[in-house]
Structure formats: C-alpha cells, structure tokens
Nucleic acid binder design. Structure first.
Lengths: 135, 135
DNA sequence: CTAAACTTTCTAGTGACTGGAACGTCAAGT
DNA sequence: ACTTGACGTTCCAGTCACTAGAAAGTTTAG
C-alpha cells in the first residue's frame, strides 16, 4: 500500500505520515523501488495517532499511548493517568482562554466602535484603568 | 534606561524585548557603548505589548493595535474589529478544547484504571466503538 | 584591580507540521 | 517504444513567539 492510500485510510496527510516515520512513530517497510509499503497494522497505528492527536494529545503522549497500546500486559491505570493529565492541561488552557475572553468581551462592550478615536480597548492596553470596573 | 530596568518596568523578559526590537515592534535608541537606551515611551509600548499578548493577541495583531494606538486619528471601530475577530478565534479554540475535554472525560469515566490491561481509552483510540454511547 | 553583574550578537532549538524544489518511478494511452 | 501525468522520494526552509546558551564586550562595587 502506497502512502496516498495510507493517507486516505488513516485520515492523515502524506507529509504528516512521513514526519511520523521521521520521528519514529511508525516504521513502514520499503519496496524495491524505495516506496514505503504500508501494512494494515501501519494503517491501524496511523489511525490511532490521528485520533489521539485530534483529542489534543501531544506527540510524546501519543508515543506513550502507542507503546501502552502495544503492551498486552499494560495496566489501564497507566493509560488513565496519561489521559487525566491531559484533561487537566486542557482545563487550564480553557480557563486561560475564558479569562481572556471575559476581559476582551468587557472591553469590546465598552467600545462604541465608530469613527471617533476614543477607545477603551486601547486605553486598557495602554495601562489605563477602567473606571466602570469595580476596584 | 538599560534593558533589565525596562524588563522590570514592562513585565517582559530582556530576551523578549530584544526579540521585539528584532521584529520591529520597538526601536530603542542606543548609547555610546552600544547598549539599548529605553525611553519612557518605549517602556509604555512594551507594557502595551505585554498586556496585549497576555490577552492572547498575536504579534501581528499587536503590531496593528500599536499602530492604531499611535494614530491619533484612528477610528475606534478599527480597534473593535481586531478585538472582535480575536474573541471569535478564542471562542473557536475554547469550543475545540471543550469538545476534546468532553470526549476524554467520557473515556476516563469508562476506564476502571487498575492493573488490568482492558482499557476503553485505548479501545477508542484504536477505532473501537463505545457501546455505551448512543449511535 | 578584580570579580560580578550586566550588556551585546549570534546560532539553534521548541512543537507539529507544511510548502516547495529537485528528482525518481510507475501506469495508461498512443 | 514513448510520452504524459500522477505518483513517490529526500532535503531544506518556514511557521509562531519566544527561549537557551555561547562568546565576547562593558560597567560597577568593593
């Protein structure tokens, strides 16, 4: 199976698949012509990676998850821990973004948004205090 | 004023300040010894940048915002538009992360997390369907 | 006079790809 | 047999916003 087919089946672009081989996540065979020859097990791994990446796991998480996946004697607790740490990171990121959104939404609400130069958003960025915000 | 003092006053590390000069966001004078000499206006700009970055604006947004800030004849509508687009991007990112969190939390709940190898998280990543999830 | 604490520039690395160049291979049609 | 076009390969560079570290010059305190 050539890389384009593997891409179609796994949902990953060829460039990404080559990159994953570069960093040692997959090791497809090579044909006599030098082309990568993907086995079903490679496709399976690639789809696994695509799904894990879509859930936001880092490449290093993926490496760990793949090796747990291939370890028949793994403890599910180890998998769960990786996932829990990841959810915690996601939660922190969401909180950070929500903080930004709240602050920005407030500023946007204050800004009349017309032709005049007067602008509470720039005032805030410039270090101005917002008199309408409780101290 | 030397870079360390500027860093202290603006809240940005010296490395970042040098980087901002590299990409043309600030243009401090230079003393006879080659050291950067920061004026109050530079500190002001740097603090502006620090605040804008902390709100998640990209460097290019910051460049635009700074130039609006320095344009006495700007329209606040232009500032508001930049901010609104940014809030929209933040909203998309939050939604994406919440999607990941929901999916992961569900999988984590399903995983007993003990010494046994059986693991719904890996099953999902491997493309398995979750029989407890409504089709 | 020396040593520490600063400053400078430069290069390279981060994460996870992505774009593009330059070149080799294969399959189909004429 | 030949050509064409779609595929494959490698390698280099770029993305974003810094950050680490090296090597060298300058300033300041004791």
């Amino acid at each position: 199976m050539n890389i384009r087919t593997a891409a179609g089946l796994s949902g990953l672009p060829p460039k990404t698949i080559r990159y994953y081989e570069d960093i040692g996540l997959v090791r497809p065979e090579r044909g006599a012509n030098g082309y990568r020859a993907f086995a079903d097990s490679d496709i399976h791994k690639l789809a696994f990676l695509a799904r894990a990446r879509s859930l936001g796991f880092t490449i290093e998480d993926c490496r760990a998850l793949l090796s747990l996946y291939e370890d028949r004697g793994r403890a599910s607790a180890d998998v769960k821990r990786v996932a829990e740490e990841h959810v915690a990171r996601i939660g922190e990121k969401i909180a950070e973004l929500e903080g930004m959104r709240a602050a920005l939404s407030h500023l946007i609400d204050q800004c009349h948004g017309d032709d005049r130069p007067d602008c509470p958003i720039l005032d805030d960025l410039a270090g101005g205090v917002d008199s309408s915000r409780p101290s």
